[in-house]
Nucleic acid binder design. Structure first.
Lengths: 198, 198
DNA sequence: CGTATTTATTATCTTTTGTTAACGTTTCAG
DNA sequence: CTGAAACGTTAACAAAAGATAATAAATACG
């Protein structure tokens, strides 16, 4: 059972999508567990079906696809983020991506099935599900346009000036290169051209 | 007021997300309108806020972003698709993209506001909203991974072998190039390399 | 129809990125 | 503490893509 203050962090996030009553919360609380994932360990490995939704109390994670024997990191998860292979959970298919801890992580988790069950139990939770998916649509749409319309260099500069700059500050550069859809060598050159703005 | 059989096409689509009762349907029907959009005309122009959701009975559309004075087409809409700047509707901000008819189009439309109102009125509709957003997440996630992980040539080949091949068959090639995130000249070369599989 | 516009291909040249490898530095684990 | 692994930069070369322009073909439309 997770600590009180940790649980309230999770509900702070959920509340930012849909304000919940104490009663709504009670539905979820019995199904929360506390988990530790050590640096380098996996939250989810390729081929497994996603069963859990995590909430990161501390630490960070990445997810990556294996393509031609290479790990292609396409997303990062930080403190206060939900972490899950949403795609695998939604489709019920084995995950094509792996999620790995970049540092020792403390999380709260609950079964994805419980979330779906709560969609049935309460319109509030159903609304949360909608808002969450809509939030993801907005993020994915923005990122996809950048990939389609901007050059790698423009993408780097935009990331540098965005609210996701913490990715640049906290993640190794070759993973950022993946995230931008280019090679590490290419990113090194782009940074040099840009005058290595610290 | 749209024709009976046209309305039933719309509900066929909605039913594939969430089965509706006759009563659920009655909520929406009074707000449906029939619309024609001529080839070349706009469903939505950049800078406008999206107010409507369309359902294409006949015809096709594209949406594009203006970048450095160039139109970058990043999505196509066909018969039986919903058409809307979901991003603009969700965020309530002026649209950064324009949606234009590629051929004469017949549509049913209803105000996005009505959809949101129905989210309030009925959990069934709320669920539809969730399923729709989840469906979009799945599509966006897949496409984004392709953009990050595959080369332009691999992306072309995958499109060629996908269930979206109709894009290749029905759309002009320079727009497909945009859709793949490359230039028309480059796509022409890729097709040549690929042996111009018919 | 027939003319104007759009579209696709090809060629040439430039720029960028990918690939591979070497090197020095940092990080990490035993 | 120390050797191994991981990381970032740089160089040299190859491959691919972008830019521009010319041309040919297809299409649109008055």
């Amino acid at each position: 059972m997770p600590a009180e203050q940790d649980i309230s962090l999770l509900f702070n996030l959920i509340n930012s999508f849909v304000p919940l009553t104490q009663q709504d919360k009670e539905h979820l609380i019995p199904h929360l567990s506390y988990r530790n994932v050590k640096k380098g360990d996996y939250w989810l490995a390729e081929g497994e079906k996603e069963q859990q939704v995590g909430f990161i109390l501390e630490g960070s994670m990445r997810h990556f696809y294996l393509h031609d024997g290479e790990e292609k990191t396409t997303y990062f998860y930080f403190q206060n983020n939900l972490v899950s292979s949403y795609f695998s959970a939604l489709t019920g298919t084995p995950s094509k991506l792996s999620i790995q801890a970049m540092s020792n992580c403390r999380l709260i988790s609950f079964p994805y099935k419980m979330l779906v069950l709560m969609y049935e139990l309460s319109p509030k939770w159903e609304r949360f599900g909608r808002k969450l998916a809509e939030y993801l649509v907005i993020g994915l749409e923005e990122r996809m346009v950048e990939l389609l319309v901007l050059s790698p260099e423009e993408r780097y500069n935009r990331l540098f000036n965005s609210n996701k700059k913490k990715i640049l500050e906290r993640m190794p550069q070759h993973l950022i290169a993946n995230y931008l859809g280019i090679t590490p060598v290419s990113l090194s050159r782009i940074r040099k051209r840009a005058g290595t703005k610290k």
